[in-house]
Amino acid sequence: MINELKIISREPGGLVLLIILPYFIAGGMAFIASFFTKITSNVFIRQFVGFEVLMLSMIMVQTGARFLNEERNGGRLEFLLASPTSMYVILLGTSMVMIIVDIGAFTIASLPLLYLNYGLIGMIRLTIALLLLFIGLLPLYGLGLLMSGIVIKLKDADTIMNIVTPILTILSGATYPIYVLPWWIKDLIYVLPMYITFSSMYMEIMGNTGLSLILNLILSAIIYLLLGVTAYASFEKEIKRGGV
Protein backbone atom coordinates (compact mmCIF):
# COMPACT_ATOMS: atom_id res chain seq x y z
CA MET A 1 0.00 0.00 0.00
CA ILE A 2 2.81 2.39 0.91
CA ASN A 3 4.56 1.60 -2.38
CA GLU A 4 1.40 2.28 -4.33
CA LEU A 5 0.77 5.52 -2.40
CA LYS A 6 4.33 6.64 -3.23
CA ILE A 7 3.74 5.89 -6.92
CA ILE A 8 0.50 7.86 -6.95
CA SER A 9 1.96 10.79 -5.00
CA ARG A 10 4.68 11.13 -7.66
CA GLU A 11 2.01 12.56 -9.93
CA PRO A 12 0.11 15.15 -7.89
CA GLY A 13 -1.46 16.42 -11.11
CA GLY A 14 -3.36 13.15 -11.38
CA LEU A 15 -4.91 13.73 -7.98
CA VAL A 16 -5.88 17.27 -8.90
CA LEU A 17 -7.45 15.92 -12.08
CA LEU A 18 -9.48 13.41 -10.08
CA ILE A 19 -10.96 16.35 -8.18
CA ILE A 20 -11.64 18.71 -11.08
CA LEU A 21 -12.64 16.22 -13.78
CA PRO A 22 -16.20 15.67 -12.45
CA TYR A 23 -16.69 19.45 -12.58
CA PHE A 24 -15.43 19.50 -16.16
CA ILE A 25 -17.66 16.62 -17.25
CA ALA A 26 -20.80 17.43 -15.23
CA GLY A 27 -20.28 21.15 -15.93
CA GLY A 28 -19.79 20.54 -19.66
CA MET A 29 -22.91 18.40 -19.89
CA ALA A 30 -24.89 20.92 -17.85
CA PHE A 31 -23.67 23.64 -20.23
CA ILE A 32 -24.93 21.71 -23.25
CA ALA A 33 -28.22 20.81 -21.54
CA SER A 34 -28.75 24.42 -20.45
CA PHE A 35 -29.52 25.36 -24.09
CA PHE A 36 -32.59 23.13 -23.96
CA THR A 37 -33.79 23.26 -20.37
CA LYS A 38 -33.26 24.99 -17.04
CA ILE A 39 -30.69 23.24 -14.83
CA THR A 40 -31.53 23.46 -11.15
CA SER A 41 -28.93 22.98 -8.40
CA ASN A 42 -30.57 19.70 -7.33
CA VAL A 43 -30.31 18.32 -10.86
CA PHE A 44 -26.68 19.39 -11.08
CA ILE A 45 -25.84 17.79 -7.72
CA ARG A 46 -27.53 14.53 -8.77
CA GLN A 47 -25.58 14.48 -12.03
CA PHE A 48 -22.36 15.47 -10.28
CA VAL A 49 -22.69 12.60 -7.78
CA GLY A 50 -23.57 10.31 -10.68
CA PHE A 51 -20.45 11.25 -12.64
CA GLU A 52 -18.31 10.92 -9.50
CA VAL A 53 -19.65 7.40 -8.81
CA LEU A 54 -19.21 6.47 -12.47
CA MET A 55 -15.65 7.75 -12.66
CA LEU A 56 -14.56 6.13 -9.39
CA SER A 57 -16.28 2.87 -10.38
CA MET A 58 -14.32 2.70 -13.62
CA ILE A 59 -11.08 3.37 -11.76
CA MET A 60 -11.87 0.63 -9.25
CA VAL A 61 -12.79 -1.93 -11.90
CA GLN A 62 -9.66 -1.19 -13.92
CA THR A 63 -7.05 -0.77 -11.17
CA GLY A 64 -6.26 -4.44 -10.52
CA ALA A 65 -6.31 -5.39 -14.19
CA ARG A 66 -4.07 -2.47 -15.22
CA PHE A 67 -1.69 -3.25 -12.35
CA LEU A 68 -1.36 -6.91 -13.35
CA ASN A 69 -0.97 -5.95 -17.00
CA GLU A 70 1.88 -3.57 -16.17
CA GLU A 71 3.53 -6.19 -13.96
CA ARG A 72 3.29 -8.77 -16.74
CA ASN A 73 4.67 -6.34 -19.35
CA GLY A 74 7.52 -5.49 -17.00
CA GLY A 75 8.26 -9.20 -16.42
CA ARG A 76 7.45 -9.00 -12.69
CA LEU A 77 4.21 -11.00 -12.68
CA GLU A 78 6.00 -14.37 -12.44
CA PHE A 79 7.85 -13.19 -9.31
CA LEU A 80 4.66 -11.83 -7.79
CA LEU A 81 2.87 -15.12 -8.40
CA ALA A 82 5.81 -17.04 -6.95
CA SER A 83 6.13 -14.81 -3.85
CA PRO A 84 4.70 -16.07 -0.54
CA THR A 85 2.35 -13.08 -0.36
CA SER A 86 -1.06 -13.91 -1.77
CA MET A 87 -2.12 -12.06 -4.91
CA TYR A 88 -5.33 -11.12 -3.09
CA VAL A 89 -3.28 -9.17 -0.55
CA ILE A 90 -1.29 -7.47 -3.31
CA LEU A 91 -4.40 -6.59 -5.30
CA LEU A 92 -6.27 -5.54 -2.15
CA GLY A 93 -3.33 -3.29 -1.20
CA THR A 94 -3.34 -1.69 -4.64
CA SER A 95 -7.10 -1.27 -4.66
CA MET A 96 -7.25 -0.01 -1.05
CA VAL A 97 -4.95 2.82 -2.03
CA MET A 98 -7.28 3.64 -4.89
CA ILE A 99 -10.26 3.47 -2.51
CA ILE A 100 -8.57 5.93 -0.12
CA VAL A 101 -7.56 8.24 -2.97
CA ASP A 102 -11.02 8.02 -4.56
CA ILE A 103 -12.83 8.80 -1.31
CA GLY A 104 -10.42 11.67 -0.64
CA ALA A 105 -10.99 13.09 -4.11
CA PHE A 106 -14.75 12.73 -3.78
CA THR A 107 -14.68 14.52 -0.41
CA ILE A 108 -12.66 17.46 -1.70
CA ALA A 109 -14.69 17.72 -4.91
CA SER A 110 -18.09 17.52 -3.23
CA LEU A 111 -17.42 19.65 -0.14
CA PRO A 112 -17.88 23.10 -1.70
CA LEU A 113 -20.88 22.03 -3.76
CA LEU A 114 -22.74 20.41 -0.87
CA TYR A 115 -21.83 23.12 1.63
CA LEU A 116 -23.08 25.86 -0.68
CA ASN A 117 -26.37 24.05 -1.26
CA TYR A 118 -27.15 22.38 2.06
CA GLY A 119 -24.91 24.08 4.63
CA LEU A 120 -23.63 22.16 7.66
CA ILE A 121 -26.28 19.46 7.41
CA GLY A 122 -24.84 18.73 3.98
CA MET A 123 -21.48 17.97 5.62
CA ILE A 124 -23.06 15.39 7.94
CA ARG A 125 -24.86 13.79 5.02
CA LEU A 126 -21.61 13.81 3.06
CA THR A 127 -19.88 11.87 5.86
CA ILE A 128 -22.51 9.12 5.69
CA ALA A 129 -22.43 9.24 1.89
CA LEU A 130 -18.66 8.65 2.05
CA LEU A 131 -19.23 5.56 4.17
CA LEU A 132 -21.71 4.35 1.59
CA LEU A 133 -19.16 5.09 -1.13
CA PHE A 134 -16.61 2.96 0.74
CA ILE A 135 -19.07 0.06 0.89
CA GLY A 136 -19.98 0.66 -2.76
CA LEU A 137 -16.37 0.46 -3.88
CA LEU A 138 -16.00 -3.04 -2.36
CA PRO A 139 -18.22 -4.84 -4.90
CA LEU A 140 -16.38 -2.91 -7.57
CA TYR A 141 -13.14 -4.33 -6.17
CA GLY A 142 -14.79 -7.74 -6.61
CA LEU A 143 -15.56 -6.89 -10.23
CA GLY A 144 -12.00 -5.64 -10.55
CA LEU A 145 -10.71 -9.03 -9.38
CA LEU A 146 -12.81 -10.72 -12.04
CA MET A 147 -11.42 -8.33 -14.66
CA SER A 148 -7.87 -8.97 -13.43
CA GLY A 149 -8.37 -12.70 -13.95
CA ILE A 150 -9.74 -12.17 -17.45
CA VAL A 151 -6.89 -9.80 -18.34
CA ILE A 152 -4.12 -12.15 -17.27
CA LYS A 153 -5.83 -15.02 -19.05
CA LEU A 154 -6.51 -13.20 -22.33
CA LYS A 155 -3.32 -11.07 -22.13
CA ASP A 156 -4.83 -7.95 -23.70
CA ALA A 157 -5.84 -5.37 -21.11
CA ASP A 158 -6.50 -2.53 -23.57
CA THR A 159 -8.92 -4.44 -25.77
CA ILE A 160 -10.82 -5.85 -22.79
CA MET A 161 -11.03 -2.46 -21.09
CA ASN A 162 -12.11 -0.78 -24.33
CA ILE A 163 -15.05 -3.19 -24.49
CA VAL A 164 -15.91 -3.29 -20.80
CA THR A 165 -15.68 0.46 -20.06
CA PRO A 166 -18.47 1.72 -22.38
CA ILE A 167 -20.69 -1.24 -21.45
CA LEU A 168 -20.28 -0.62 -17.71
CA THR A 169 -20.63 3.13 -18.25
CA ILE A 170 -23.98 2.75 -19.94
CA LEU A 171 -25.08 0.10 -17.42
CA SER A 172 -24.16 2.31 -14.47
CA GLY A 173 -27.50 4.11 -14.55
CA ALA A 174 -25.85 6.85 -12.51
CA THR A 175 -26.38 9.83 -14.78
CA TYR A 176 -29.78 9.25 -16.36
CA PRO A 177 -33.29 8.07 -15.48
CA ILE A 178 -33.25 4.31 -15.99
CA TYR A 179 -37.02 4.07 -16.60
CA VAL A 180 -36.43 5.07 -20.22
CA LEU A 181 -34.60 1.80 -20.87
CA PRO A 182 -36.02 -1.63 -21.79
CA TRP A 183 -36.77 -3.88 -18.79
CA TRP A 184 -33.86 -6.28 -19.41
CA ILE A 185 -31.29 -3.45 -19.37
CA LYS A 186 -32.96 -2.02 -16.26
CA ASP A 187 -32.62 -5.42 -14.54
CA LEU A 188 -28.94 -5.53 -15.47
CA ILE A 189 -28.47 -2.05 -13.99
CA TYR A 190 -30.15 -3.11 -10.74
CA VAL A 191 -27.88 -6.15 -10.51
CA LEU A 192 -24.64 -4.19 -11.02
CA PRO A 193 -23.24 -2.29 -8.01
CA MET A 194 -22.89 1.19 -9.56
CA TYR A 195 -26.57 2.13 -9.53
CA ILE A 196 -27.10 0.98 -5.93
CA THR A 197 -24.02 2.94 -4.83
CA PHE A 198 -25.18 6.06 -6.65
CA SER A 199 -28.79 5.80 -5.44
CA SER A 200 -27.90 5.24 -1.80
CA MET A 201 -25.38 8.10 -1.82
CA TYR A 202 -27.69 10.51 -3.61
CA MET A 203 -30.63 9.64 -1.36
CA GLU A 204 -28.41 10.17 1.68
CA ILE A 205 -27.25 13.55 0.40
CA MET A 206 -30.92 14.49 -0.16
CA GLY A 207 -31.71 13.27 3.36
CA ASN A 208 -33.94 10.36 2.28
CA THR A 209 -31.81 7.26 2.77
CA GLY A 210 -33.71 4.02 2.63
CA LEU A 211 -32.48 1.12 4.75
CA SER A 212 -33.30 -1.31 1.97
CA LEU A 213 -30.85 0.47 -0.35
CA ILE A 214 -28.06 0.18 2.23
CA LEU A 215 -28.84 -3.49 2.80
CA ASN A 216 -28.77 -4.04 -0.96
CA LEU A 217 -25.41 -2.33 -1.10
CA ILE A 218 -23.96 -4.55 1.64
CA LEU A 219 -25.40 -7.66 0.02
CA SER A 220 -23.97 -6.60 -3.33
CA ALA A 221 -20.55 -6.08 -1.69
CA ILE A 222 -20.60 -9.64 -0.29
CA ILE A 223 -21.80 -11.24 -3.54
CA TYR A 224 -19.36 -9.41 -5.82
CA LEU A 225 -16.41 -9.95 -3.50
CA LEU A 226 -17.19 -13.68 -3.44
CA LEU A 227 -17.64 -13.73 -7.20
CA GLY A 228 -14.37 -11.83 -7.77
CA VAL A 229 -12.33 -13.99 -5.38
CA THR A 230 -13.68 -17.26 -6.79
CA ALA A 231 -13.28 -16.21 -10.42
CA TYR A 232 -9.79 -14.83 -9.88
CA ALA A 233 -8.72 -17.99 -8.00
CA SER A 234 -9.82 -20.14 -10.91
CA PHE A 235 -8.01 -17.92 -13.47
CA GLU A 236 -4.85 -17.82 -11.35
CA LYS A 237 -4.83 -21.60 -10.97
CA GLU A 238 -5.06 -21.97 -14.72
CA ILE A 239 -2.26 -19.45 -15.28
CA LYS A 240 0.03 -21.11 -12.73
CA ARG A 241 -0.51 -24.40 -14.54
CA GLY A 242 -0.06 -23.04 -18.06
CA GLY A 243 2.51 -20.29 -17.38
CA VAL A 244 2.35 -16.50 -17.73
Binding site: V43, T159, T175, Y176
Partner: peptide, 24 residues
Amino acid sequence: IINVLTAPLWLAFFILTLRGFGVL
Protein backbone atom coordinates in the same frame (compact mmCIF):
# COMPACT_ATOMS: atom_id res chain seq x y z
CA ILE B 1 -13.40 -2.69 -34.76
CA ILE B 2 -13.98 -2.23 -31.03
CA ASN B 3 -13.72 1.55 -31.34
CA VAL B 4 -16.26 1.57 -34.17
CA LEU B 5 -18.58 -0.78 -32.31
CA THR B 6 -18.40 1.03 -28.98
CA ALA B 7 -18.95 4.51 -30.48
CA PRO B 8 -22.77 4.07 -30.54
CA LEU B 9 -22.63 3.08 -26.86
CA TRP B 10 -20.80 6.30 -25.95
CA LEU B 11 -23.28 8.29 -28.01
CA ALA B 12 -26.22 6.57 -26.32
CA PHE B 13 -24.67 7.36 -22.95
CA PHE B 14 -24.26 11.02 -23.91
CA ILE B 15 -27.88 11.31 -25.03
CA LEU B 16 -29.17 9.45 -21.95
CA THR B 17 -27.15 11.79 -19.74
CA LEU B 18 -28.76 14.79 -21.44
CA ARG B 19 -32.04 13.14 -20.54
CA GLY B 20 -30.76 12.99 -16.97
CA PHE B 21 -30.38 16.77 -17.12
CA GLY B 22 -33.99 17.04 -18.27
CA VAL B 23 -33.54 17.35 -22.05
CA LEU B 24 -36.47 15.41 -23.51
